[in-house]
Design a protein around this nucleic acid. Structure first.
Length: 554
RNA sequence: GCUCCCGUAGUGUAGCGGCCAAUCAUGCCGGCCUUUCGAGCCGGCGACUCGGGUUCAAAUCCCGACGGGAGCACCA
């Protein structure tokens, strides 16, 4: 047997014994090519030979095949498992370090969608070394999207909590004059013009590829009108600075976009100092260059902005960073709109920026979700460009992994129903473990004549024998008959005696009221507990006879 | 309508010409364990959108269809 024939036979035998005695020529071929890449040049010849050998081998019994392989190449008898890592993909041109940025708009706190932007940046800067900047993208916005002074701190708090390390902070609102300088350069390059069309005209012209009269103004005329814009000679909406691209550009979104517009609204940081404000594309074209960015991570909704920035850099003759996009992420249970939440918070409909319905980082913190859980959750999406909708369950699973072992168990009964146990044995106090597996100590529970169970359990098991978990068995009624003490294989339900009032703020903002065991009063805010058969909660407030908690997840 | 992006199990995700008869997580189902419907352990279910092409070889490359998303704001 020649060398090639022997090699092919080994792999064919291996494939056959892995798959019930029947080898597949394609699969064998693949293995062979992977093992001996230099055979690729003789692929046709090899392929024919494999077919021939496989058909021979498939005539043999599985036993014969095994014997033969054992003789020829025993090392191939075992299946090897391949290890795979699930890391973020490499960035191009990042070997010498990176400079990256996070650019939140301060209209509210970061929500879990914004956390993706922050975490991805943080991961890459830590991987390659370099700098990460926080750049508040606080231009004047729009009437639907207003910058808000308290949002600056909410954002910084959220980043800190997430463990994002950044090296410097910038404010767009401090850089307006820099943008003016670059605007004038652009006008001088005849790359932009002042347009006095109305928003409607502009939209119409853009849709139909029509050039308006202003497009043909001279550089001098444009400069003069620009100066008048800065001087305040125009009212809002009466003049804008537009880039000159091509009104017939196949992509309507690319046609002569607006670079600066007039807004006389008051800005929360700089007041009425400026009334000519840049738009995102222009300010970033300048800043991505002047701040020395190497890579920019942004959502897929901003691809047009890449093109505009690149177009501007070319006009200016400067270089800019690489852009990397990720797809749109939605949490199924959350409606990720900052402006909507903002209204509900301001109106008092929500309890604040940490109301669970906002899905802000603050709200997740209040529910007892760990920042590390958010990080693994976010990293599980990688850098994919698909638009995805993920159930919050995935986040909860990550969090559960982190907290389960260290979280004590307690009993809690929502919508309690009081029962009296007749002829109950005299048990003044019992001692229960805080966790079924981990050594988290014990606590004592005083047992009185009156016992409460949850309304739901009462309804479901009324008239039947149930076990009050860790206590004894009863026929479940308002006047419950004691039956026995030893554990039985019947439904086990939670109960409380010597109770304290408990309120649990649920994810939808509603409040679940019930009773919990007395030992809850020993807890402190931020402690996590699992209410058995109810879910994990974070203790938010402990008063004399009342405990308030936030629901985390099942 | 135009432009761009994306289509791998229920949901996400890895893979990016042969080692894929496809990874991992989550979910679901079953078993064990357990005085929680939790956790753990074991086992199972479940996917390359479709049609052409290139190639000895396609989830992977090319073309087309279909499906989803984003942009076309004087928002970011």
């Amino acid at each position: 047997m020649d060398e090639l024939r022997e090699l092919l036979t080994k792999y064919a035998l291996q494939n056959a014994i892995f798959y019930e005695g029947k080898a597949n020529p394609g699969a064998v071929m693949g293995k062979v090519m992977a093992a001996e890449p230099e055979l690729k040049r003789r692929a046709k010849e090899v392929s024919a030979l494999v077919r021939e050998i496989v058909s021979e081998i498939n005539k043999m019994s599985l036993e014969e095949q095994k014997r033969m392989l054992e003789e020829m190449a025993p090392e191939l008898m075992e299946r090897k498992k391949k290890e795979k890592s699930h890391e973020l993909p490499e960035l191009k041109n990042a070997e010498n370090g990176v400079v990256m940025r996070m650019a939140p708009y301060p209209s509210g706190p970061l929500h879990i969608g914004n956390a993706r932007m922050a975490i991805l940046n943080d991961e890459y800067v830590k991987r390659y070394g370099g700098k990460l900047f926080l750049v508040y993208d606080d231009t004047i916005g729009s009437s639907e999207k207003l910058p808000d002074l308290e949002a600056y701190d909410l954002i910084a708090d959220g980043l800190k909590w997430l463990g994002i390390e950044y090296h410097d902070v910038f404010y767009k609102s401090d850089r307006i004059e820099l943008f003016y300088e670059w605007a004038e350069r652009l006008i001088e390059l005849d790359g932009a013009y002042v347009c006095e069309c109305s928003a409607e005209e502009l939209r119409y012209n853009r849709e139909h590829g029509i050039e308006c009269e202003h497009r043909h103004q001279s550089v001098e005329e444009n400069m003069e009108k620009w100066k008048r814009m800065l001087a305040g000679d125009y009212e809002e909406g009466k003049a804008i600075l537009r880039i000159k691209t091509d009104m017939k550009h196949p992509n309507p979104a690319f046609r002569d976009r607006v670079l600066f517009r007039i807004s006389k609204r008051e800005h929360p940081r700089v007041g009425k100092k400026y009334h000519v404000w840049p738009l995102l594309e222009f300010s970033w074209a300048v800043d991505d260059h002047t701040l020395g960015m190497t890579h920019v991570l942004r959502g897929k909704d901003l691809v047009m902005e890449d093109l505009m920035e690149q177009y501007l850099w070319k006009l200016f003759g400067i270089e800019g960073p690489e852009f990397i996009h990720y797809g749109m992420l939605r949490i199924k249970e959350a409606k990720l709109s900052k402006s909507k939440s903002s209204k509900e918070v301001k109106s008092g409909e929500f309890s604040g920026w940490d109301d669970p319905r906002t899905w802000s980082l603050q709200s997740l913190k209040r529910r007892g979700i760990r920042p590390d859980a958010i990080r693994s959750f976010i990293l599980s999406f990688g850098l994919s460009q698909s638009d995805i909708e993920v159930p919050a369950e995935n986040l909860y699973a990550e969090n559960r992994k982190l907290i389960d072992a260290s979280t004590p168990r307690r009993m809690f009964v929502p919508d309690p129903v009081k029962i009296k146990v007749k002829r109950a044995p005299d048990m003044k106090e019992i001692e229960l473990a805080n966790h079924p597996k981990e050594g988290l100590g014990t606590r004592k529970i005083r047992v009185g004549n009156e016992i409460w169970v949850s309304g739901e359990d009462f309804k479901a098991h009324r008239g039947k024998e149930i076990r009050l978990k860790d206590l004894f068995n009863v026929m479940l009624e308002e006047e419950a008959e004691f039956t026995s003490i030893p554990n039985k294989d019947i439904p086990r339900i939670q109960w409380v005696s010597d109770p304290v009032d408990v309120e649990v703020v649920m994810v939808d903002g509603s409040v679940k009221k019930g009773l919990g065991e007395h030992s809850l009063l020993d807890l402190k805010p931020d402690d996590m507990v699992q209410f058995e058969r109810f879910g994990f909660v974070r203790i938010d407030e402990v008063k004399e006879n009342m405990v308030r908690a936030y629901y985390a997840h099942p």
